[in-house]
């Protein structure tokens, strides 16, 4: 096997242990760092994240990692944002006030406001496993999802979801109550997933393998 390496951006936000463990399980050499030069030189980069949008993006800016992320993405090498790490790639987030995101994707991260089939509001945070679907029959071809079967189940936990300006950027959707949630976004070398691949058993490992194969 060719040596695969991956840098996980360490900015104190996010459960890096489980992402690291999942990658280690896939025989990847993982480096957890906030060093800007190391991030720019990486084969591929993962931006994890849990908690609130504003805190995450403010921390990235305070550490000058926003510029680093933009520089890395310009290299064309694979970049993956997970959960809040995906959300901060959007233009803005509305969690605890309005916050400017990294602006890599057009749209806004808004509070989930959906109903169950019987009309009751969905309980939020939305927690649990859900099937994801590609938006067109060949949407996942040549992406990190290439080894994932349409309808595979992933684990989600979130109170906010991305409302996309450009439907072409949506790679996967999941149903929630009687509505839909942006489950994954992708354009060129940038991928973002609302779910937690590191907590999604075999489907999650298949997705991460696909990301590592890019």
């Amino acid at each position: 096997m060719t040596s695969k390496s991956c840098v996980i951006i360490d900015y104190g936000i996010g459960n890096v242990f489980s992402v690291t463990q999942a990658l280690a399980h896939l025989d990847v050499s993982v480096r957890l760092t906030s060093d800007r030069a190391a991030i720019k030189a990486a084969d591929r980069v993962i931006l994890p994240g849990v908690g609130a949008f504003g805190r995450a993006v403010d921390t990235l800016r305070a550490m000058n990692l926003d510029e680093t992320i933009h520089s890395f993405i310009e290299t064309g090498r694979p970049f993956l944002g997970i959960c809040v790490g995906m959300q901060v790639m959007m233009e803005q987030g509305l969690e605890f006030g309005t916050h400017r995101g990294l602006g890599l994707f057009g749209g806004t991260v808004e509070r989930i406001d959906l109903n169950e089939a019987d009309g009751r509001p969905l309980r939020v945070p939305l927690i649990g496993w859900n099937s994801i679907h590609q938006t067109t029959p060949s949407r996942w071809q040549g992406t990190a999802f290439s080894g994932v079967a349409d309808g595979s189940d992933f684990y989600f936990v979130h109170s906010y979801a991305a409302m996309m300006s450009n439907p072409q950027d949506v790679a996967a959707v999941a149903h929630a109550g009687v509505g839909g949630i942006t489950a994954a976004i992708q354009r060129d070398n940038i991928t973002g997933v609302q779910f937690h691949p590191e907590r999604s058993a075999d489907a999650g490992l298949a997705f991460l393998s696909g990301f590592l194969a890019q």
Partner: peptide
């Protein structure tokens, strides 16, 4: 559409959605 994200729901999945 349907509340939360800007993508049309896929008709065959309406059952799953419920």
């Amino acid at each position: 559409t349907a509340g939360c994200c800007g993508n049309a729901l896929i008709a065959s999945d309406v059952i799953a959605a419920m």
